[in-house]
């Protein structure tokens, strides 16, 4: 693989890992506004395999987030990787 692209990929796993450990757990801008103005309760519970970036079944929250983050990052890349296959010329 192109070295520079590989670098970006490695960087993203590094960022996912760091984010899992250091990310602020405060509500984000929109959530905070919804809390302050009092319409946060209008939000409907959404189902999801890994809600709040927590991999289910792992007690350690940081570890659960690391898992979820790495899976999400891989999943994102895999999606494009799969699409790219259709544009790859046939082998010679």
């Amino acid at each position: 693989m192109n070295k520079s692209i590989l670098f970006i990929l490695v960087l993203s796993f590094g960022v996912a890992l760091t984010a899992s450990i250091f990310a602020s757990s405060h509500p984000d801008g929109l959530e905070k506004v919804a809390e302050d103005l009092g319409f946060i309760n209008a939000a409907a519970e959404t189902p999801g395999a890994m809600p709040d970036y927590i991999f289910p079944g792992i007690k350690n929250e940081v570890l659960a987030t690391v898992f979820a983050g790495i899976i999400g990052t891989l999943l994102t890349f895999w999606l494009f990787w799969t699409v790219a296959k259709f544009f790859r010329p046939a082998s010679q």
Partner: peptide
Amino acid sequence: DTFIIKMGAVASLIFAAQMFN
């Protein structure tokens, strides 16, 4: 295909960065 893979690398980087509150 390289352009699409580059899209994928940028996508994974932004996905990871979005986790960083």
